[in-house]
C-alpha cells in the first residue's frame, strides 16, 4: 500500500520551487501503475521519494504501512528499503562485481543463507537470460545485459514494492514484453509495481492505471 497526501519535495531545504508539488494519490497492495510524463516532469524524483532515497519536505507519505517522515528512525527506513526493489535508469550496478554477486547483494545484505542465495540467484539469472554469464564482471556487459542484471537484482528478494525507471530502454522488444508479463504476474501475486516510461507502445500493450506528472504536479490519476 502506498499513500501520498499533499507531498512536496524540494531539492534544498530553502529552495522556493519544489521539484514535486502537492502530490496526493494511493496505490493498493498488488496495484500496478504506469508513471508517465515528459522529461523533467519529476518521474525519477517521485521514484526516489518512494525508494526512500529522499524524504518528503511537506505532506505525509505512507509506504508498505509505514509512515515516512524526517523523524522516522533510520532502522525503519533501512528495513523499508530492503522491502523495495528499484530498477534505476542508469542500472547502478557494482562494476567490479560479477553478475551473480551483483544480483546476490540484496540477499546478502539481509543475511540470507548462502546456499539459498546461490539457488535464488541462479534461478533469476536463468530467467532473465543471463544464466551462462554468472561470473562475468558487470562492467563488461552490454547495456541490455546490464539492464537485465539490474532487473534481476530488483526482484530477487521478492520485494513488496517494485519501482522501475525506464526499465525497457535497453531491451529488445521480446525481452521488454517478457519483463512486462513478469511485472504483471508479480502484481497479481500481491507486489505493488510502479513503472516510469516514455514507451507508449508498452503502455498500450499492458493497459493499467497511469499517474501522469507535469512540472512536478500530478495531472492525471488513472485509478
Amino acid at each position: 500500500m502506498i499513500r501520498l497526501s499533499n507531498v512536496s519535495w524540494r531539492r534544498e531545504r530553502k529552495a522556493s520551487t519544489p521539484v514535486l508539488s502537492n502530490l496526493s494519490f494511493s496505490v493498493p497492495q498488488g496495484g500496478f501503475r504506469w508513471l508517465l510524463g515528459p522529461s523533467g516532469a519529476g518521474k525519477t524524483s517521485l521514484l526516489s521519494l518512494l525508494h526512500v532515497e529522499n524524504l518528503p519536505s511537506d505532506g505525509t507519505l505512507c509506504l508498505l504501512d509505514k509512515d515516512v517522515t524526517a523523524h522516522t528512525p533510520r532502522a525503519v527506513l533501512v528495513r523499508l528499503r530492503q522491502r523495495i526493489g528499484m530498477v534505476h535508469q542508469d542500472f547502478r550496478l557494482m562494476p567490479d562485481l560479477s553478475v551473480a554477486d551483483n544480483v546476490a547483494l540484496p540477499l546478502r545484505l539481509q543475511h540470507r543463507p548462502e546456499d539459498k542465495i546461490t539457488d535464488e540467484v541462479h534461478a533469476i539469472l536463468k530467467w532473465v537470460g543471463l544464466g551462462n554469464q554468472l561470473n562475468v564482471r558487470a562492467s563488461r556487459l552490454s547495456g541490455g545485459e546490464q539492464q537485465r542484471t539490474a532487473i534481476a537484482r530488483a526482484i530477487v528478494h521478492r520485494p513488496g514494492l517494485i519501482l522501475a525507471d525506464e526499465p525497457t530502454n535497453a531491451l529488445e522488444e521480446p525481452q521488454a514484453h517478457k519483463l512486462l508479463d513478469m511485472f504483471s504476474e508479480l502484481s497479481s501475486m500481491g507486489t505493488t509495481v510502479i513503472v516510469a516510461t516514455h514507451n507508449e507502445a508498452l503502455v498500450r500493450r499492458l493497459p493499467r492505471p497511469a499517474l501522469t506528472l507535469e512540472r512536478g504536479r500530478l495531472v492525471q490519476d488513472g485509478a
Partner: peptide
C-alpha cells in the same frame, strides 16, 4: 564456456573494494 564455480567464499562481494 562453463562458468566458474560460484560463489567464491572468501572474497568480500559488496563492491566496496576497500
Amino acid at each position: 564456456m562453463e562458468p566458474k564455480p560460484w560463489p567464491f567464499p572468501f572474497r568480500p562481494k559488496d563492491g566496496l573494494s576497500l
